[in-house]
Design a binder for these strands. Structure first.
Lengths: 349, 349
DNA sequence: TTTGCGATGGAAACCGTTTTCTACCCGGGG
DNA sequence: CCCCGGGTAGAAAACGGTTTCCATCGCAAA
């Protein structure tokens, strides 16, 4: 059509020239401002279409003071849980015309802060997904980041939180195993400093206190397959009949390693995971776990952000109650020989 | 420190005022321009630090004509393969100071085009990850999207491609099974229109031609767990001794459904997947598959984009050769009773 | 002492919009 | 017939920077 296949995108002034109006008029038309003569408006629209004109989001953002973009910082893009959260968030945001900028901190705690600040600067708001940084650092940082919403982490500052209720979920897993007759447990913990880990340890303590005949031993572990796999000896040596893993990945690693040792799950050891990532159905045996609605959490995080963006102040934290999913990796404890093993600490229980 | 905890971020003129220089000088200092008196520069830097000044990326982008951001469009953020690609890409981009805008098309083919255009407009370049759209639409769209790089898809237009070599990988899987004595196969295909699927079907044809004694039947299936699971009857009815799944997800779904039928893998049916997502090790039995280096692909996609951004023209397509990973879901074919089943089409083979 | 030149800093133009403010045109009322 | 007001369109001022261009300053050479 055009003699010159115009290499440069058209600007508002090009449209104005073509339609024979001022650029202010073009702007008004593009923004549905009703104070413009319909016939003029039509002419402008035709010109815009002919030129395939679209307003530069950059210039627009600069003057409007908003970018229509939110940033999300996650510790690891490879983790299925964060992935699901991101997915829920991004789809919800898209529905309202917002874009999503992602930043993967690659589990580098030191970088998280600057990454957050820098990402925030390029957008209208920030979602911090399970930040690993120290609580004091987080609390100090948050005010400069607003509007900001936290996922799977809390702060004293008045910022909204969307999280899974780790404590009650872990309690539920414990009670499930207790009901099956288990009394000796190991808990495979995650990243030592992390808040998610602290929450779970609190739940473990609650569980201990609720049943004076149980013994649960916490083992430092990690958050990935390999961490679970290398923990196998410690788990087996502990004499426990049931293992609570930090998450499904750890549970799968452990499960696989236990099986390779020639032992059987759940006959020789019951194992539970956490998160219910889509793959837990397909392990051998399928994993009993606690299903956290990660995609819903992401979606809710957007709801909170959207509310903040609309000028509302932070609402109360939102907790999602995970749901116990019993599959085949847990079973009634076998006999009493294990209960008589040398490490029993509550012989009177 | 400050009497007023300045609610608004400082602008360049604030720094200039505080340092007692013109704003041009501040700009020069911030951009490492060497033509400024060192003592002045120091004063400016001190003022900037005191005010915690950072140049607005928006204003900067507007005048510089670049956003330091690239967009990535993926069909589904929930797919582990895209996730790995995204991870490789985003980490590589970060190393060069670039940010990543993501768009999840949610497998909605119709939306892909506008999503791509809109995302592209907010960034300096676009990475299209396995776009599902028609080839003609893609070819027509690409020129307006440059700089753009394609992942797992090709185009006649001179745009760089980074992809896994599906054809040779699928051939390799076929040969592996052939070597185990299998002669009757089913191939569970993916999204009918998609390029990835076409490539694999081509490989299936090549495999057929290479061995006149094989029979491979293509079954329309899908790309997820459930698709593989619902295909179980068709697979079993086909009389095949080995199934080639479109990807690991499909393979896992099929594997699980076959097992539920009371049949054993690989004794009654050999199954191979594709991609080698991290979970294939943990299925029962562990899945034989073809390992595609998704994270490397993402990283390489950034390399191509980076080159384009530097003004170079598109290089030749880069193909990654997947690697056959033999685990326990494949085994020598059992006896000859199946080879004599009624559907044999090459009785002379 | 004057001239010329390089090194520096400032003023102003520009990036592409939105929006306020002002000017205009037209019709109606005094 | 004149004045005023409502509604429309254009001019200009932001938004927050970068960069070109020009003026000035200091210093060395004539």
């Amino acid at each position: 059509m055009d003699p010159h296949p115009s290499t440069k995108p058209p600007k508002i002034v090009d449209v104005a020239k073509r339609a024979g109006v001022s650029l202010s008029t073009v702007s008004r038309v593009m923004n549905q401002n009703p104070t413009v003569d319909p016939v003029l408006a039509a002419r402008v629209r035709k010109a815009a279409k002919a030129l395939n004109y679209h307003a530069s989001p950059l210039a627009r953002s600069l003057v409007l003071g908003r970018t229509q973009t939110v940033s999300v910082v996650v510790p690891d893009l490879g983790n299925p849980t964060f992935q699901a959260i991101l997915r829920g968030l991004s789809r919800a945001a898209k529905r309202q015309g917002y874009h999503v900028l992602i930043a993967d901190s690659a589990e580098a705690v030191a970088e998280e802060g600057v990454l957050a600040v820098e990402s925030r600067r390029r957008s209208d708001g920030l979602v911090l997904c399970a930040p690993r940084m120290e609580q004091s650092e987080l609390d100090a940082l948050l005010p400069s980041l607003e509007p900001v919403v936290l996922v799977n982490r809390e702060s004293s500052a008045g910022v909204p939180t969307v999280a899974a209720d780790y404590r009650s979920a872990l309690r539920e897993l414990g009670e499930h195993l207790y009901g099956l007759g288990h009394r000796r447990f190991v808990f495979l913990s995650g990243v030592p400093g992390s808040a998610s880990n602290r929450n779970r340890l609190v739940a473990v303590d609650e569980f201990r206190r609720a049943h004076e005949d149980v013994d649960v031993q916490a083992l430092e572990c990690g958050v990935g397959f390999e961490d679970g796999a290398v923990a196998v000896d410690a788990v087996l040596d502990s004499g426990a009949t049931a293992a609570l893993a930090y998450n499904d990945l750890v549970a799968m690693g452990l499960l696989s390693a236990v099986t390779e040792r020639g032992l059987r799950v759940p006959d020789d050891l019951s194992i539970v995971g956490f998160d219910d990532i889509p793959f837990t159905k397909y392990t051998n045996p399928p994993l009993t776990t606690s299903s956290v609605p990660a995609e819903d959490i992401g979606e809710q995080a957007w709801v909170e952000m959207s509310s903040l963006l609309a000028g509302n102040s932070a609402r109360h934290p939102v907790y999602f109650r995970p749901r116990l999913v019993v599959r085949a990796s847990t079973a009634p404890v076998q006999g009493a020989e294990k209960a008589a093993a040398p490490m029993v600490e509550h012989p009177l229980g």
